[in-house]
Amino acid sequence: MELYCLESDKTVRAQPDPNILCDDRVLQSLLTIEERFLPQCSYFQRVQKDIQPYMRRMVAGWMHEVCEEEKSNEDVFPLAINYLDRFLAVMPTRKSYLQLLGAVCMFLASKLKDSRPLSAEKLCMYTDNSIAPRELLDWELVVLGKLKWNMASVIPNDFIEHIIRRLPLPKDKLAMVRKHTLTFIALCATDDRLAMNPPSMIATGSMGAAVCGLQLDHSDQRLSRDNLTDLLAKITNTEVDCLRACQEQIERVLATSLQRGQQYRQESGVRAGNKAREQQDQSSTPTDVRDVNL
């Protein structure tokens, strides 16, 4: 007799738990504690001497690529960025250690959220071995100490299900709204100007941008821009004006990002074929959110 192992390599994930997601108390608790996990200050002026905003964008972009390539849980990236910001808000850091720090943050976040966490070796490989696993593990301890071992941060992703079920969205659009919201949240995490906003604000702003971008108000007036903002503000007890400002900021970041993508496409079109890395698909950068098909 032969024995076959039929277990697939696919990760098994827990079902969404309605006891958690449909309980109003959970949302209220999240809103109460979320402030605790914000970086203490805007650190570029106050704490860091060597690190500039564009460097954070660089490291955040790299972290996002690694999470994508490793197909990490979608919570890993925003959580890792939360660790990064909190660490940088308390500890002056050299520019040359920033990538190490990013790797450590992903290492920790992945342990919390992935069913198969990223290994230290793999993360070091992604830094092109500019750091060694031993150093990663050493600095893991430093980061944990600076964050006071307080690792279960509230992140924008935690709010998605709580908000989405309170919106009058057509059933067939739910998956799309969810996906776009996640994308916008990740986009917000790469942008330093949005780093000081509470997670609930990022979540509502992102969902607002997603719903508006998909133009769902054509079929339902309750989803028109103003009505939606009012509704979202009510759900998370925020000021309508703050929320509107946040959503607009997200939309600006999105527009810049799309523009940059297009620019890149044109530039690299000219230099086409020079480098192997430029041969990847460049034809599909969308200029409108609705063009994004999944």
Partner: peptide
């Protein structure tokens, strides 16, 4: 959407 139409492999020293 996240901008970088991948400008190379994720493996790199920043």
């Amino acid at each position: 959407i996240l901008g970088t139409p991948r400008n190379g492999p994720a493996r790199r020293s920043l």
